[in-house]
Lab assay of single mutants.
Amino acid sequence: MEQATVKWFNAEKGFGFIERENGDDVFVHFSAIQGDGFKSLDEGQAVTFDVEEGQRGPQAANVQKA
């Protein structure tokens, strides 16, 4: 698992990007966020996640709020 920071997340559209420590951004979809209830992330929030290869490149999976 990697630890990184949420760059931005649009709760209405259900997706955003996580900024990795190496500077690369990773796409995150609300369905990858672990937990119950409304799944959203806040800008600047610390998260841990795995990286999977998606249809359009790397994307976050198993996202957990740190």
Rank of each mutant, 00 (worst) to 15 (best):
A66L: 15
F49A: 03
F17H: 01
F9M: 03
D24F: 10
A32I: 03
R20F: 06
N10C: 12
F27H: 02
H29A: 03
D24C: 12
T48L: 12
V6Q: 01
G35D: 08
T48E: 07
K13Q: 08
E53W: 15
Q59H: 09
A60L: 01
L41M: 04
Q64F: 08
D36A: 11
G23D: 07
F27W: 04
I18T: 01
V47F: 00
E12S: 12
F27Y: 06
E52M: 12
N22F: 11
G35H: 09
Q34V: 14
E53H: 12
D42A: 14
E43V: 15
F15C: 06
R56F: 14
Q55W: 13
D50K: 12
G54F: 06
F15R: 00
F30K: 08
A32D: 09
A61Q: 10
T48C: 12
F49H: 03
V47Q: 01
A11K: 15
F30M: 08
E52W: 10
F30G: 05
V63T: 02
K39H: 06
K7C: 10
F17Q: 01
G54Y: 06
G23S: 07
V47N: 02
P58D: 04
F17R: 00
G44S: 05
F9A: 04
A60P: 02
W8T: 00
T48F: 14
N22Y: 11
Q45A: 09
N62F: 06
R20K: 08
A60W: 01
I18D: 01
A66F: 10
V6W: 00
N62D: 02
F38K: 08
G57F: 04
Q55L: 14
W8M: 02
I18S: 00
F15N: 01
E12Y: 12
A60N: 00
G44V: 02
V26Y: 04
G54T: 13
V28A: 01
R56T: 07
A32G: 08
V51L: 12
Q45H: 09
P58E: 06
F27L: 03
F27E: 04
G23C: 08
G23Y: 07
F27C: 07
F15Y: 15
A61F: 08
D25M: 15
F38N: 08
G54S: 10
A11V: 13
E19G: 11
D42C: 15
E2N: 12
L41R: 00
K39G: 05
D50A: 11
Q3S: 13
F38W: 14
E2T: 11
D50P: 01
Q55R: 15
K39M: 07
P58F: 10
T5L: 11
V26F: 05
A11T: 13
Q45W: 10
Q34I: 15
A60V: 03
K7E: 05
F38H: 08
S40L: 08
R56I: 07
V28F: 14
H29Q: 03
Q45V: 08
N22T: 10
G23H: 08
G35V: 09
N62W: 05
G14L: 01
S40A: 09
N62G: 04
E52A: 10
F17G: 01
D42L: 14
V26E: 00
A46R: 14
N10A: 05
D50C: 13
A11I: 12
V26T: 05
F30S: 07
E21V: 12
K13Y: 11
G23P: 02
T48Q: 09
T5D: 05
T5V: 13
E19S: 14
V63M: 00
G14R: 00
R56Y: 14
T5Y: 14
W8E: 04
F17T: 01
Q3A: 12
S31Q: 06
V47S: 02
I33L: 07
A66W: 09
Q55Y: 14
L41C: 05
V28M: 06
D36Q: 11
G16D: 01
S31M: 07
D24H: 11
E21P: 13
A46K: 14
A4V: 03
E21R: 12
I33F: 05
G57V: 04
F9Q: 05
A60I: 02
K7P: 03
A66G: 10
D24L: 12
E53C: 14
V51T: 07
L41E: 01
V63P: 02
N62C: 08
Q3F: 14
M1N: 12
P58L: 13
N22L: 09
K13E: 05
P58V: 10
V6G: 03
K65P: 11
Q64L: 09
G16F: 01
W8G: 04
A32M: 05
N22S: 11
S40D: 07
G44K: 06
F30Q: 07
N10S: 12
G35Q: 10
E2H: 14
P58T: 10
A11F: 08
T48K: 09
K65N: 08
